[in-house]
Design a binder for these strands. Sequence first.
RNA 1: GGAGAGAUGGCCGAGUAGGUCGAAGGCGGUCGCCUGCUAAGCGAUUAUACGGGCUAAAACUCGUAUCAAGGGUUCGAAUCCCUUUCUCUCCGCCA
Length: 422
Amino acid sequence: MLDLKFVRNNPDVVKDALKKRNANISLEPFLKLDEQWRQKLAEAEKLKNKRNVVSEEIGRLKKAGRLAEDLVLEMREVSAAIKDMDDEIRLLEQKIQLTLLEIPNLPDQSVPVGLDENDNVEVRRWGEPRQFGFEPKPHWDIGEALDIIDFERGSKVTGARFTFYKGAGAALERAVINFMLDTHTREHGYVEVLPPFMVNSNSMIGTGQLPKFAEDMFKIENTDYYLIPTAEVPVTNLYHGEILEAENLPIYHCAYSACFRAEAGAAGRDTRGLIRQHQFNKVELVKFTRPEESYKELEKLTANAEKILQLLGLPYRVVTLSTGDLGFSSAKTYDIEVWLPSYNAYKEISSCSNFVDFQARRANIRFREGKSKPRFVHTLNGSGLAVGRTVAAILENYQTENGTVKIPEPLQPYMGGKTEIN
RNA sequence: GGAGAGAUGGCCGAGUAGGUCGAAGGCGGUCGCCUGCUAAGCGAUUAUACGGGCUAAAACUCGUAUCAAGGGUUCGAAUCCCUUUCUCUCCGCCA
């Protein structure tokens, strides 16, 4: 959420940002509502002041043993008027709030202006895509042939885009999760959190999934709970409504969770394999920082995620998302894309974003430095990494001509010393 | 699921026969004094949000709101009533 006062005082800056994002939102209704609201508020507050002053007077008179019927009668009417005005004001506030909640974040100056993902800018590459001496197979064929991934039974038991991992497949998934968590906690200084996999709507508003993107999520019937689309939601909201100690910043958390996405509007995309599932595993990195440090921390967070791919020996590239491809809450995002032979392309495996104070304002997460007023922290997060896609990348990049898969060295201790899936 | 108790400021904790309570006291924080240094001590100060005024912006100032959340009674609610949420204790159930 943007600062109400900022939008009021800098409508042109906001309009310009919306244009860069190709967001079709007009600010005019908002500005008009804000004007109305402030006027009504001033009127109501004047009346409330009168009521307070006179009520005090009534108390004084009664104590002195005098009656004050005329004043009581007058105040009865004033109170009724106040009630009506408060109703109007509340209605205006709700409208303003809703508008504000649906305005996306302002892109950072350094974000390339563009229409869509085609305008994303490559920042760097690591590793060389392997030259196969044979026709490489896609991971869904490898997984089925080795009997370690079962797509068909996933569909039978639940539905499309749900999958069973089996035997060495399940073990590999678990190994990747543990390897990532251990690396981030031991090497990169993150404190592990194991969050709830459901959150209430307030938390979803805090990180920006609601009110705009309700159709992307699974809601639990007859409750206010949603399945989390990412651990970002519970972990960022960990400090919802809190004032943090400045000396404790930055706070680094990493978290494993299952992630649930309705994938509304993704029909026909990535229909085969592990790439686009309704449920997948992810290790998430979340940071709370001082405003001055957030962009430096974004670089570090991205590097932490890249490190996993380097250790696993998976080629990747990093791109800066253009204004047209930037997520709703983000001010700047780097996508890390891993090389997938089946796609003959780099495919997103991590998204590292700086939300600046956008989420912090929604979730009311602040910090206090000495005696100064509380300020909003900056929040960041990134996948460190998407586990299913990592497993897919391992299967494809480490496949052998005879259909087996070599296990990357760092994962072998997590697989009981096993070096190959066959 | 049943019965009961509770929710007050950064923290702890007073305050309920409604009235000057944004809220005693303590802790913590900040500033000053004192002390060879540290500790201790003394004094002062210390909520947040929003709106208006004044500003380049602050500071400042005026006002409003906030004692879990929402509603009600009343001229007036931290205090009374209702609903919801959460916490704790006991019982039941359960991995």
